[in-house]
């Protein structure tokens, strides 16, 4: 058990709020009333038993390079490990064409994952759990639909977006045949205009993710594969998903 962010029933002080009819009179802070003459309700911090669900995207695009799948797997394992260390009960899901829960031996199962398929399946997720989606977010169905499916009854939902530098800024030129690893191909004459259009669409996609995740937690945190694990962790700390002291969110 540990303290949650919101108000609850622990012994730790959280904040005051004005009294409203119906409030439990046992929670009136008489000392505050003496100082201010206002009826104030003393709220304690919530005592929670957190459940973390790490949703690892294992669609084919996550294995576009070995480094990408390795970083995504490492981040999922790291988040689950930190939750375990904090006494939490992490639960990992491998979301590909089907949703596969990884049980107690999730460490071994993580190493055996294969990335395939193109859509994120719907998982039977626990209500109130804090969920972290580790994905590249490159799904044509769009963030809203995905968040609607994966964010139902979630305590919070954040997303760690794992992208390669080529996905951020494609260094293509001339006539190429683009083969999407999740299906589909197209011949393009790529020039600076096409690349600029790609960047705009990617930025809009990331904005869509950010909007869909707003009010649900840490939001969208983008890490770059080529920058390595350390840079990714610093990004998660900077984004509030991890606390520098080592406590999981």
């Amino acid at each position: 058990m540990r303290l949650g962010r919101g108000p609850g029933a622990s012994l730790e002080f959280h904040d005051h709020r004005s009294y409203a009819p119906g409030d439990d009179l046992r929670h009136l802070d008489w000392s505050a009333y003496a100082r201010s003459g206002q009826l104030m309700i003393r709220r304690q911090r919530k005592e929670v038993s957190p459940r973390l669900e790490v949703l690892l995207d294992v669609t084919a695009s996550m294995a576009i390079t070995p480094a990408k799948s390795a970083l995504a797997t490492a981040l999922a394992a790291l988040l689950a490990s930190l939750a375990e260390r904090e006494g939490g009960r992490p639960r990992l899901w491998a979301l590909g064409g089907t949703a596969v829960p990884l049980a107690q031996d999730w460490r071994a199962r993580l190493r055996q994952l294969t990335c395939q398929g193109g859509t994120l399946a719907t998982a039977n997720l626990a209500a109130g759990a804090e969920r972290i989606l580790v994905s590249d977010g490159l799904h044509a169905e769009g963030p809203v639909a995905i968040i609607r499916r994966l964010g139902t009854e979630a305590g919070s939902l954040a997303m760690v977006q794992v992208l390669t530098r080529a996905e951020l800024d494609p260094a293509l030129d001339g006539a190429v045949r683009l083969v999407d690893v999740e299906g589909g191909e197209a011949d393009l004459i790529i020039d600076a205009g096409v690349v600029a259009g790609y960047r705009q669409r990617l930025a809009r996609l990331q904005d869509s993710w950010q909007t869909a995740l707003r009010g649900r937690g840490a939001g969208l945190l983008t890490v770059v594969v080529e920058d390595g694990l350390d840079a990714a962790l610093r990004r998660l700390v900077r984004g509030g998903l991890l606390i520098a002291s080592g406590s999981a969110a």
Binding site: A166, E167, V181, E185, R201
Partner: peptide, 11 residues
């Protein structure tokens, strides 16, 4: 041919 992961992002 070039393998990519976000064909829908290309105009």
């Amino acid at each position: 041919p070039r393998r990519i992961s976000g064909l829908f992002l290309f105009p």
